[in-house]
Simulated scan of single mutants.
Amino acid sequence: MDPPVAVCFDMDGVLVDSEDYWHPAERDRIFPAVLAGELPDLDEVTGMNYREIYDYLDDEYEVTVSEAEFVELYDETATEVYGERVRLLPGAREFVDDLRDAGVPVALVSSSPLHWLDIVLDRFDLEFDLVASADEFDGLGKPEPGVYEDAIDDLGTVPEHTVVIEDSRNGVLAAHRAGARVIAYRDEHNADTDLSEADEVVEGPEELFAAVRQSIETVRASASGSSGSSG
């Protein structure tokens, strides 16, 4: 039996519009409070786990706070962003439920820590077959492929049978390097982001859901053709 076709959603900037709040928070409040001198471009760190953001900034810029202080500032911001401000992608809950009802395993794969993910899952009453956080992954997070490789394995499938939805360059690179089919979600927050490593770039929920459905059918047709020709 062929491995199932599976779908992996990123959270920030795809499932919820959190990048609309994270980007100004990082640009205007967090980075000026933790760095002296030059500030990074947001695309450098978007999609990365916040602990790895600290390590990156410590290597490339002049950090003025400890990692514990940095993490506390991010956690305080996250409580407000996820608990009060973000909105769910219109139609996302129903779409995820429909996929799961149709026998398609669906995962949430994020660089955010589990306690941030839990806020979103509880607030919007979301259910997935797998919830994977790079914060719990014993290895490098996005843009490295390990978090997706682990999630794909845990879903009981293979990369070529997996459709990933991402919005950041780091996330797209991670999914692409893992060997999955990558759909990049374009919105105002990433209008100028390089998403060229994605197999497809879409805008808006309806276009996204249609692209995921079409990708599932494409993967199934390819798998069926391969099975038919192997005998």
Rank of each mutant, 00 (worst) to 15 (best):
W22V: 07
D118H: 07
G141I: 07
P32W: 13
R169H: 08
E144A: 11
A68I: 02
A191T: 08
G139R: 13
S227P: 01
F70L: 08
R213C: 05
E207A: 11
G13K: 12
E203A: 14
A25V: 05
E72Q: 14
V45N: 01
R177F: 15
D12C: 14
I183G: 10
D41W: 00
A6K: 09
E44P: 02
A107I: 03
F128T: 03
L114H: 15
E80Q: 06
D118S: 02
M11L: 14
W116C: 15
G171K: 12
P90R: 09
I183P: 09
P145D: 11
V16R: 03
R177M: 12
E136C: 06
G171F: 02
D135E: 12
N190Q: 14
D97G: 09
E26L: 12
D101V: 04
G139W: 15
V81I: 15
E44H: 00
S227W: 05
P143C: 04
S18P: 06
E149V: 06
T193S: 08
G83Q: 08
S66H: 07
L126N: 02
L195S: 00
D150T: 03
S66R: 04
D97A: 15
D59T: 14
S230T: 11
P90Q: 03
R177Q: 12
D2P: 07
E19G: 02
S224I: 14
R123L: 04
V212Y: 10
I30P: 01
G83W: 10
E160H: 12
E136Y: 12
V16M: 11
R27A: 13
N49E: 09
L88P: 12
G103N: 09
Y21L: 14
A191P: 15
P113H: 05
L195R: 00
T77V: 04
P105V: 05
P205W: 07
C8R: 02
D118R: 13
T193Q: 01
V65K: 12
I30N: 01
R85H: 10
P113A: 11
F70I: 01
L121V: 10
V16E: 06
D2E: 15
Y21H: 13
E127L: 03
Y82V: 07
W22A: 09
E127K: 04
V5E: 03
A33S: 15
E84N: 03
